[in-house]
């Protein structure tokens, strides 16, 4: 695929030369994990008798990976359009698919590194996550989820024309979604109507799938449902993203 390697290489170099952004992308969900871990330290969830960390770790991890994918691609797309980088690419024979594939590759690298670090910290004794045997299923689930959230980021980055716009729109999408999807506290604690709404949100399925695979909260059916739902969301959002995509701010 022409241009894929070039764009991925340029993206990796750009990220490697902006370690502040990389550091805080990794640190952001970890800060949440530690804060929630300390707040609920020693508490057990009644029905299962398992530690609260088994709830919160998959949830915060899911939100962290999704958030990084959305913000990363949204900022890049907006910036590339403002800086005429997209027009430059538009004038080369590189297909749009290469542009998207390179951003996907970068988001996957970031997402997997984030996950590795996050799970590593969650396993520390003071947080005490216990890894279920099905944890490897988290990886294909993340690969699917990153498609869906990358597509959301593309939509945000196509709609917003300024960094402030990207931050406003992406936060407005991602923060409420994180709460309603149960990233920070169990969906069971919510009123039933809100729990029903959460079924329409992609992050809900990533949370459930991550909880089932990583912490064994749920069975394989849960993982399969999550994968199917994330696949569906990916198709839907990708279709919208391709419709709203613009090579330049003016036509």
């Amino acid at each position: 695929m022409r241009g894929y390697g070039a764009l991925t290489g340029a993206g990796i170099r750009a990220a490697g030369r902006d370690l502040t952004t990389v550091f805080f992308t990794f640190a952001f969900p970890l800060v949440f994990l530690v804060v929630f871990g300390v707040i609920f330290s020693g508490q057990r969830v009644e029905e299962t008798g398992r530690g609260y960390i088994d709830y919160i770790a998959p949830g915060v991890l899911s939100w962290g990976v999704a958030n990084a994918a959305v913000f990363g691609v949204a900022f890049t797309l907006m910036q590339w359009r403002n800086d005429d980088i997209l027009r430059l690419i538009r004038m080369t024979p590189t297909p749009l698919l290469s542009v998207l594939a390179s951003r996907y590759a970068l988001a996957v690298v970031m997402g997997l590194l984030q996950t590795l670090l996050f799970v590593g910290v969650a396993l520390l004794p003071f947080l005490g996550l216990r890894l279920a045997g099905s944890w490897p299923l988290l990886i294909p689930l993340l690969l699917l989820a990153i498609v869906a959230f990358l597509a959301i980021g593309m939509i945000v980055g196509s709609v917003a024309n300024t960094p402030e716009g990207v931050a406003a729109v992406a936060n407005c999408v991602m923060l409420p979604m994180a709460f309603v999807s149960g990233s920070f506290f169990p969906v069971d604690m919510m009123p039933p109507w809100l729990a029903a709404i959460s079924r329409a949100l992609p992050l809900r399925y990533l949370n459930d799938g991550a909880a089932a695979s990583l912490a064994g909260r749920g069975d394989l059916t849960e993982v399969a449902v999550a994968a199917a739902a994330l696949g569906g969301f990916s198709l839907l959002f990708a279709a919208v993203a391709l419709r709203v995509f613009r090579w330049s701010n003016d036509t």
Binding site: R2, G3, A14, Q79, D83, D84, L88, M91, P93, T94
Partner: peptide, 28 residues
Amino acid sequence: LGVQTQKSAFFARLTAREHLETVARLYG
């Protein structure tokens, strides 16, 4: 076609050489 626009477009944080290499690879 070769196109130079009024607003110079460069890939962030690359060197001049890396930018040109990236553009060349976009053209194959």
